[in-house]
Amino acid sequence: MKRSTLSQGIGFTFLYLSMIIALISVGAILFFITKNGIKIISWEFLTGVPRRAMTQGGIAPALVGTFYLIIGAILFALPFGVAGAVFLTEYSPNSVVVNIIRMSINNLAGVPSVVFGLFGLSIFVRFFGFGVSILSGSLTLGIMILPGIISASQEALIAVPQSMREASLALGATQWQTIRKIVIPSALSGIFTGVILSVGRAAGETAPILFTAATFYTRGFPDSIFSEVMALPYHIYALMTEGTHPEEQTLIAYGSALVLLLLVLMISGLAIYLRQRQRRYKLA
C-alpha cells in the first residue's frame, strides 16, 4: 500500500472515531436519564404538586413556572430583537454606529449566564424593586436571549430577496410600508424559528434565574408576576443540593431532568426542522 493511502486511512479513522465518541458520550447521558427517569413519569407526575417534603407528588408548579418565565422573556425580547434586526438590516447605513451595535450584540451573546443573573439581581430585583419574581426572571432571561433573536431575525430578513424591496419601492411604497407589508411577512417564518430556538435555550437555563426568580418550593401556583416561582431546571438542582431525602428526591430529579430534556429537545428539534425546511424551500 502506498504511504499516502495509509496515512489517509489512519487520519480518516481518527476523525471517524472522534465523531463516534462524541455521539456515544452524549448518547450515554440521554440513555441513563431516560432509563431512570421513565420509571417515575406519569400523568400524575406531570400534573401534580410536590407532596411530603418533596419526596412524592409531581412537578406541575415547576412546569408552570418555567412556562411563565419563557413567555415573559419572549414578550420582552421579541420587540427589541426584531426591531433591532430591522434597523440593522433595513435601515443600516453600514456606519460606525451599526458596527458598534453589531459588536455589542456579539459580545452580549458571550456573557456568561451567571453574570446575567448578577445583573438581574442588581437591577430588577433590587434597583427596580421587583423582588425575586417572575418579572425579574423573565427580564433577565429576555436580555440573555436577545442576541439570539436578533441574529435569527437578521438572517431571516437578509434572506428576503432585494428584488422584493425594489419592486415595492418602485410602486411608490415608503420604506416603512415596504418593511411592514413585504419584508417582515416574508421573513416571519424565519423569525419564528429563531424565537422557538431561543425558547428552547431559555427553558433550560438555570443560572440567570437562581437569584432573580426561582425558589425551591411554593405552595401551589404563582398568582402574580411578582411571585417567586419554581422552575424545572432549578427544581433539579434544588432537589440534588437542598434535599433531605436523597433516595426519593434523586428519582424525582431524574423524572424532572427527563421532562426538561424532552421539552428542550422537542422545542429545538422543531426549530431545526423548520429551519432546514425553509432553507430547502429557498434553494428550490
Partner: peptide
C-alpha cells in the same frame, strides 16, 4: 417620484402573495 416613474426589473419579482394581492398592493399603499 417613484409613483410617477414605475419600473419593471430584469428578473420577474412578484411578491410571494396571490395574483390579486400583487396587483392591489400598489393601490393600497397609495
Amino acid at each position: 417620484i417613484r409613483r410617477k416613474v414605475g419600473m419593471v426589473f430584469q428578473k420577474p419579482n412578484p411578491f410571494p402573495k396571490s395574483i390579486y394581492d400583487n396587483l392591489s398592493y400598489g393601490l393600497k399603499i397609495n
